[in-house]
């Protein structure tokens, strides 16, 4: 018994070390969205409102001032044009002229665009930064959220299955 007590610190430390090692693999910036499993939030901005959303579809939060948005844009274009995915865009904290110029330059993959100049719709969607992409199913329920720029890998692994393809 007494000997076991002296082993206790080592045991506690071993458990702690194991957790820390697991923790190293995780990404601390990943925050799961509480919206997943619930209907799309109620919002209405210039050009887009909750009633306009027809699933299955993607809702992509973007901005012309956001560099990673530029990086993921070709993927969105590919999804819309080649795969026929319906995408709604929300221009977050962006002037409509700037957002339109951005789309004029890179092409417009969106069925509809909402202009959320003051970020109010962003709060409804629980946005912490751009870009973020939500997946809606046929009933209009949020089934998945991707934080950060989309990658081909994430589209194949997460987005397309969530869309039911």
């Amino acid at each position: 018994m007494r000997r076991l007590l002296f082993l206790l610190p080592l045991a506690v430390f071993a458990a702690l070390g194991a957790y820390l090692y697991v923790g190293l693999g995780g990404d601390p910036s990943r925050v799961p969205s509480p919206l997943v499993g619930r209907p799309a939030p109620v919002f209405a901005v210039d050009g887009l409102a909750t009633a306009d959303l027809e699933g299955p579809a993607l809702v992509n939060i973007f901005a012309s001032w956001c560099v990673p948005c530029r990086a993921e844009h070709p993927l969105l274009t590919h999804l819309a044009e080649e795969e026929g995915v319906v995408i709604y865009g929300v221009a977050y904290k962006d002037k409509p002229e700037a957002a339109n110029a951005f789309l004029a330059e890179l092409g417009n993959p969106y069925r509809r665009i909402g202009f959320d100049e003051d970020g109010r719709a962003g709060v409804e969607w629980g946005v912490t930064g751009v870009p973020e992409t939500f997946v809606l199913d046929a009933e209009g329920t949020v089934v998945f959220k991707h934080t950060g720029p989309l990658t081909a890998d994430a589209v194949r692994r997460d987005l397309l299955p969530a869309l039911g393809r």
Partner: peptide, 17 residues
């Protein structure tokens, strides 16, 4: 660093036990 921590602390605590 985790490796360093594991060797230093783990070793010392094993010695302690």
């Amino acid at each position: 660093i985790l490796l360093l921590l594991g060797i230093a602390t783990g070793g010392a605590l094993a010695l302690y036990a």
